[in-house]
Computed example of a mutant assay.
Amino acid sequence: MSPLSITRTLPPDATAAALRADVTEGLSRTPKHLPPKWFYDARGSELFDEITTLPEYYPTRAEREILRATADRIAAATGARTLIELGSGSSDKTRHLLRALTGLQTYLPVDVSESALRAAGEALLTEHPGLTVHALVADFQRGLTLPKTPGPRLLAFLGGTIGNLLPAERAAFLDSVHALLSPGDALLLGTDLVKDEATLVAAYDDARGVTAAFNKNVLEVINRELGGDFDPADFDHVARWNAEREWIEMRLRARDDLTVKIPGVDLAVPFAAGEELRTEVSAKFREDGVRSELAASGLKLTEWWTDSAGRFALSLALRL
């Protein structure tokens, strides 16, 4: 069996420093905001896994349906010898690609969690003993350098995660993808699609309240890591469709006037009754918009696949 190698490109204190910076910047301004990456501690990851099984939350099932139907076509179109996956997590959906990419030599998962990379990498090596797995502990938004690997290369960014980036961040991300790839390499991109408001809001505000618990978990992260005294019961979960920007916003709304102390960043944060803290943006897309954004970064959309209900899309784009 090929060995699993893990390269850490983040300094040991990078995650803690980034949390301090994001909390200081996001909670010191009006309107208040936090980036969604802070949902995903161990408890948050468990809650998100539960969300993906809820009847209201269609994206995971829809993307998996597309991958099952198109993995062979993706393999034929790319001939990839290296698969790079950003935000790989458990690498669960990637298994469809790994089975189809018969000429694959190297799998390069990228994630901020070393424990998740190790667990997924060891499992994959058991399933694919001839595969080389070179995991990177890295934040793809903070500059990424890839090791030399055989081409052609296929970079996968799945789950609709690109929707969590604001438009300027998306443009910068796609520019960075172009810089990472060589001509003839490809990007496989998962995007959730614009649809009726009721379906979208329900996916982020389920009847069982799992998404509400997931949203409030960011407060628990701040309490644990920075000594905050947030009481999640002081906030209501809010999911709202912004029709103008075509994105879902998740927010936490203060029930009463209150002040939260966060000693780890020397902050006392006042909230007025009804004031909202934005914790996530999840943009939804249309094919023409995806094509345009890719083209602006030197990536040509060549394939567009949706699930049977037309809710979610996978697109394949070549680096020009």
Results as ranks from 00 to 15, higher is better:
residue 193 L to K: 08
residue 194 V to E: 15
residue 195 K to W: 01
residue 195 K to N: 07
residue 196 D to C: 04
residue 197 E to T: 15
residue 198 A to S: 13
residue 200 L to Y: 03
residue 200 L to W: 02
residue 200 L to M: 08
residue 200 L to N: 08
residue 201 V to S: 12
residue 202 A to G: 06
residue 202 A to V: 05
residue 202 A to W: 01
residue 204 Y to S: 10
residue 204 Y to G: 10
residue 204 Y to L: 10
residue 205 D to L: 02
residue 205 D to V: 04
residue 206 D to V: 01
residue 206 D to I: 00
residue 207 A to C: 00
residue 208 R to K: 14
residue 208 R to Q: 15
residue 209 G to N: 13
residue 209 G to A: 10
residue 209 G to P: 04
residue 209 G to I: 06
residue 209 G to Y: 04
residue 209 G to H: 06
residue 210 V to Y: 02
residue 210 V to W: 01
residue 211 T to Y: 06
residue 212 A to S: 14
residue 212 A to K: 02
residue 212 A to M: 05
residue 212 A to R: 03
residue 214 F to P: 04
residue 215 N to F: 03
residue 215 N to W: 00
residue 217 N to S: 09
residue 218 V to H: 01
residue 218 V to S: 09
residue 218 V to K: 01
residue 219 L to E: 11
residue 222 I to G: 12
residue 222 I to D: 09
residue 222 I to L: 04
residue 223 N to C: 07
residue 224 R to V: 09
residue 225 E to I: 01
residue 226 L to K: 09
residue 227 G to V: 04
residue 228 G to M: 04
residue 230 F to E: 11
residue 232 P to N: 07
residue 233 A to V: 03
residue 234 D to A: 15
residue 235 F to E: 09
residue 235 F to M: 04
residue 236 D to K: 00
residue 237 H to V: 04
residue 237 H to A: 08
residue 238 V to M: 08
residue 238 V to Q: 13
residue 238 V to R: 13
residue 239 A to D: 12
residue 241 W to N: 06
residue 241 W to H: 14
residue 241 W to L: 11
residue 242 N to M: 03
residue 243 A to Y: 00
residue 244 E to M: 01
residue 245 R to L: 15
residue 247 W to E: 14
residue 248 I to A: 11
residue 249 E to G: 10
residue 250 M to T: 14
residue 251 R to F: 00
residue 252 L to V: 09
residue 253 R to I: 03
residue 254 A to K: 06
residue 255 R to Y: 04
residue 255 R to I: 11
residue 255 R to G: 13
residue 256 D to A: 15
residue 256 D to H: 15
residue 257 D to V: 09
residue 258 L to C: 13
residue 258 L to N: 02
residue 259 T to P: 01
residue 259 T to C: 03
residue 260 V to N: 08
residue 260 V to K: 03
residue 261 K to H: 15
residue 262 I to C: 12
residue 262 I to V: 15
residue 263 P to Q: 08
residue 263 P to N: 11
residue 264 G to R: 00
residue 264 G to Q: 00
residue 265 V to W: 05
residue 266 D to K: 12
residue 266 D to F: 00
residue 267 L to G: 08
residue 268 A to G: 08
residue 268 A to R: 13
residue 268 A to M: 02
residue 268 A to V: 02
residue 269 V to W: 03
residue 269 V to R: 09
residue 271 F to K: 05
residue 271 F to R: 06
residue 271 F to S: 08
residue 272 A to L: 13
residue 273 A to D: 12
residue 273 A to N: 10
residue 274 G to I: 07
residue 274 G to K: 05
residue 275 E to G: 06
residue 275 E to K: 03
residue 276 E to V: 06
residue 276 E to P: 02
residue 278 R to C: 14
residue 280 E to R: 11
residue 280 E to H: 12
residue 281 V to S: 14
residue 283 A to Q: 12
residue 283 A to Y: 15
residue 284 K to C: 11
residue 285 F to K: 06
residue 286 R to G: 12
residue 287 E to W: 03
residue 287 E to I: 01
residue 288 D to L: 09
residue 290 V to P: 07
residue 290 V to T: 15
residue 292 S to Y: 00
residue 295 A to P: 02
residue 296 A to D: 14
residue 296 A to I: 02
residue 297 S to H: 10
residue 298 G to R: 10
residue 301 L to P: 04
residue 301 L to G: 13
